[in-house]
């Protein structure tokens, strides 16, 4: 009997202590971010999708279609074809696609690249309802990004 009464009191006290802690936390500043309204920024080393680097010196990428990224990729994301241009010089890609839906973002291709022309993009809201959106043609992608860069520079 005495034990039961004691238990009731300790139980009530433990709940009061818990209530006090919850109340204490209620007065703190909220940590949630109202995401679509309030913009967030990923860390500088964030691993987004893979893309070509646009070197400021040449104004374009430096891919030599050596297929090292294609060979090291654990999940076969890349499909690359390349030729030597008729006027001579380095081998260049004429077809370069990347399947983001297979990619596990392990950055092995970036480490394997001999000309350092691959990087992770800082984009993070890449979700889509359409499966075709995950296929990136890198050559078209570079042209589009160059246009954007030009537009901001000329403005």
């Amino acid at each position: 009997m005495f034990k039961n009464i004691k238990e009731i009191f300790t139980g009530a006290w433990s709940i009061l202590v818990g209530m006090f802690i919850t109340f204490k936390w209620m007065l703190k500043r909220p940590v949630t971010i109202q995401y679509p309204k309030q913009p967030t920024r990923p860390s500088p080393v964030h691993k987004g999708r893979i893309r070509f680097v646009i070197f400021p010196a040449t104004g374009t990428h430096d891919c030599i279609a050596c297929l090292k990224c294609q060979n090291i990729c654990p999940s076969d994301c890349f499909e690359i074809k390349g030729d030597k241009p008729a006027e001579g010089g380095k081998k260049r890609p004429n077809f370069f696609t990347y399947n983001f839906s297979n990619c596990s973002l392990c950055s092995l291709c970036i480490e394997a690249c001999p000309t350092k022309t691959l990087e992770h993009s800082p984009e993070f809201n890449l979700a889509s309802e359409n499966k075709d959106d995950y296929f990136y043609n890198f050559l078209n992608d570079v042209e589009e990004r160059k246009k954007k860069v030009d537009a901001t520079v000329n403005r």
């Binding site: 940590v31 973002l105 992770h120």
Partner: peptide, 18 residues
């Protein structure tokens, strides 16, 4: 979340690291 933010600063991923 605080720890995952720290991992994002060192590795770039939040859940499946390499």
């Amino acid at each position: 979340e605080e720890i995952l933010d720290m991992f994002e600063m060192c590795d770039g991923s939040r859940l499946t690291y390499n």
